[in-house]
């Protein structure tokens, strides 16, 4: 019995050693380069107030575009993102239809949302701000995101990747989406998670 316990303890010790060796780690290599956004690891998420009682999430699943990072001169960094509006999903078909119709996003008239950067300011190696023009619902307005560089480094397939998280709050009425402002909040929190593959 004691032998069995000792064997099990040894196996667990070995296993935990292996786990420690394989633990998830952020890669801290240089993010410099030009990247193509990987749509399968990128997403736009949003949270909107519902009837004053909750903050409901939604997302856009198809994100494409590119970004260029000059680690020494961030002012030269560029980001370009394109999102098809009909990639919206809020986990309920009827609501998706309502949101894609003329009441809100009006996807048939405005099939894409785009963001083009005009400036990047980093306050340290990983954090800063991203400013640019967001075109949504046929209206273009300047928007500033808080920006966090998550990591950069090689992938197992011989490529090189880098990723960012950008967050901001917009007012939908600024983009001409005025319907039902008493039931669905004007302010919308937006989060853009992007992962790019270096070209």
């Amino acid at each position: 019995m004691n032998k069995a316990i000792a064997t099990l303890a040894a196996a667990l010790a070995l296993q935990s050693g292996i786990v420690l060796a394989d633990a998830y780690q952020v890669q801290n290599s240089s993010p410099a380069g030009t990247y193509k956004i990987d749509p399968t690891h990128s997403m736009v998420q949003f949270w909107v107030g519902h009837m004053g009682v909750s903050e409901f999430p939604g997302r856009f699943d198809a994100v494409s575009g590119s970004f260029t990072v000059d680690a020494a001169h961030h002012e030269a960094d560029k980001v370009s993102v394109k999102v098809p509006i009909d990639s919206l999903d809020t986990n309920f078909d009827k609501r998706n239809k309502d949101l894609l119709g003329p009441d809100f996003f009006n996807a048939k008239q405005f099939p894409t949302m785009t963001f083009t950067s005009t400036g990047v300011k980093m306050k340290n190696a990983n954090e800063g701000t991203l400013t640019g023009n967001l075109t949504l619902h046929g209206v273009t307005r300047p928007v500033t995101f808080s920006l966090r560089h998550v990591g950069a480094g090689p992938d197992p397939w011989g490529g090189y990747r880098s990723g960012y998280v950008a967050k901001t709050t917009i007012r939908r009425s600024d983009f001409g989406m005025n319907y039902m402002l008493n039931g669905i909040s004007d302010t919308i929190e937006v989060q853009l998670n992007i992962e790019g593959k270096r070209q």
């Binding site: 003329p102 009006n106 008239q109 619902h137 046929g138 209206v139 001409g176 005025n178 319907y179």
Partner: peptide, 13 residues
Amino acid sequence: IYGNFAFPPIEAQ
């Protein structure tokens, strides 16, 4: 209800 009088309009309505 709609309250958007932009001209030219941004939407069909």
